[in-house]
């Protein structure tokens, strides 16, 4: 006799995850290590690491990500610090104003940036790298500010006071107390920006930067019906994401809560 219990409620979701999350990954792993005829091969793997184009793309994407992440951090840290320490009664409102652009479709936001940059520079082709950094920063900035604010807000004020009482000046207190305590926020902010920037090739496309980043490689293999090499790029990206996530999970606690904490 069928008896309902709460446990059984997870069956649909478990099946869903199996079919639409696990199985697709298994399939791309299979594709990454086979050729067009379905024969097992390491060629896609060795091609990736011996082709100067793909390696160049990997380095270029990492560089874009790194610069964007640093720019976001340098701009966002003071904002988060000022907001977390302000005595304003409605600082959550100001924080909200910083987060709000995230709810406007990112392609429309990049359109706005593109029109402004075109008006200023005349032709976007003159400064592709600069434009990409501006576009990416504009797109991902809210993702940096939120974890920073959350970390700085949590810091026990008494620790700062104690540091002052013990004779440390403002700068020393910041370097020795505040900044180390905000590290979990810094780390999750970095992951929230660094990883998505590596793959968001739409920002480059829209700003007429024709250089490839990792995401564009998947797009171009997809358009060429080359599922095998496309899968290999996906696997490489997945490996990078896995390493970064495991590494940062050890350092701070990041989960989806940051991507989700905006509501």
């Amino acid at each position: 006799m069928f008896k309902f219990s709460r446990k059984q409620l997870c069956i649909p979701y478990a099946v869903f995850l199996l079919f639409f999350v696990i199985a697709p990954l298994v399939v791309i792993i299979y594709y990454a290590f086979t050729n067009g005829k379905g024969e097992f091969t390491f060629n896609n793997f060795t091609n990736f690491f011996t082709d100067s184009n793909t390696i160049g793309t990997l380095i270029y994407s990492m560089f874009i990500s790194l610069v964007t992440t640093l720019v976001c951090l340098v701009i966002a840290y003071p904002v988060a610090y000022i907001l977390a320490n302000s005595k304003l009664k409605r600082k959550s409102v100001i924080l909200m104003i910083f987060i709000m652009p995230m709810w406007i479709n990112f392609t429309l936001r990049i359109t706005a940036v593109k029109e402004i940059l075109t008006a200023i520079e005349g032709n976007l082709a003159y400064y592709p790298f600069l434009n990409t950094i501006i576009g990416m920063t504009y797109d991902f900035f809210p993702f940096m500010i939120l974890p920073l604010y959350n970390a700085l807000e949590k810091i026990d004020r008494r620790l700062i006071e104690a540091s002052h009482d013990l004779g440390a000046d403002g700068v020393t207190t910041f370097i020795k107390v505040t900044f180390p305590l905000s590290m979990p926020g810094v780390i999750s902010g970095i992951t929230m920006v660094f990883l998505p920037v590596m793959t968001n090739y739409v920002v480059l496309d829209m700003l007429y930067n024709s250089t490839y980043i990792m995401g564009s490689l998947i797009g171009s293999y997809f358009n060429a019906y080359d599922w095998n090499n496309g899968s290999m790029i996906s696997i490489v990206l997945l490996a990078i994401i896995l390493v970064v996530t495991l590494f940062t999970n050890k350092l701070g606690n990041i989960t989806g809560e940051n991507r989700g904490a905006t509501l």
């Binding site: 990954l25 791309i28 793959t199 090739y201 599922w227």
Partner: peptide, 14 residues
């Protein structure tokens, strides 16, 4: 949650 959306989309498509 942690995966790149490009990879999620590509793998579901495949």
């Amino acid at each position: 949650v942690v995966n790149a959306d490009v990879v999620t989309g590509f793998s579901v498509c495949i």
